[in-house]
Amino acid sequence: MMLGDTIFDVYWFQTVIKVLVVALLIPTTALILGIVFLFKVMSWMQSRLGPQEAGPKGLLQLLADGAKFLQKEDLTPMSADVRVFRMAPIVVLMSTFLLFVIIPASPNLVVENLPNGVFFAFAVSSLSVIGVLMAGWASANKYALLGGIRAAGQLIAYELPMVLAVVGVVIQAGTLSMNGIVVAQAGFHIGPIPVPYIVTQFPMFLVFLAATQAELTQAPFDMPVAESELVAGYQVEYSGFRFLFFFMAEFATAFAFAAIAATLFLGGYYVPGLDINSGIYWVLGPIVLFTKIMLVSFLIFWFRFTYPRFREDQLQRFAWKWLIPISLVWISVTALFKVWVA
């Protein structure tokens, strides 16, 4: 008993557990489930045959894709900056996985309940820009360079609406902690009905989704990877498992942002009517959160498969002329209400 208590309290042991959770558990369970779900969504929306036909009910398409990438040769262009080239996908993937650190799956089931979790999320998500720029430059390819620079311009431009979109929620909840925001939402009522923040922050939710789409470099904001223009932008020289890293990072980031949106706007793991301190959240929390994540990522992928691509200048105009003014107005409204109610 003494031993057990000790080892679970030791800092390094907790760290190991947490690293395992971040690096193994999340990719293996959530990603696989999610990607299979999204593959199915994609195949129905686009009438693609692979995810409908490969294996029983088309479930093996993911396996086939993964095996395909692993079989391929790991090529490095002759004129590439080899070390930077090899490091870039890892930087991107790392930025993605760090995002999962602060997402609470139940009141206590969280890797690290940072008091300024929202701040942390945006800090680490901007790290991916560095990875993308590294990939774009180190490939020594003009398409990759154009893609990398487009990505940098786009990711930085869309940080702002994204942060502003969250400010409303933060003002309403009065905390930067992700768990704190869920708890605050659990106690939020309009009249007698408990509602998540999406009801009061609906414009912000839309702004957040649009900004997420841009952060993910997905259609309609996929200029950095635009297949038909820049072939695949900064990913053009990557093959094999390094490309798989980018591919995983794309889906995993979609997940992470969907999780953040689910937590901030949809109440995270909380189910209205159930006491927030109830022990059932150890089991129910992750399931509820996963469902909400799927809901949001379904939206994200729905947009992705419906819209054509913006042009770079149109993208900037959209950010500056629409998203940022809308979020600024809504921040003011939220702040006024907060002061007025208080």
Partner: peptide
Amino acid sequence: LGAQLGGVTAVFYAFR
């Protein structure tokens, strides 16, 4: 045309 402008869905419908 859809594929060139980034809307890949159209090309699947067209081929179908």
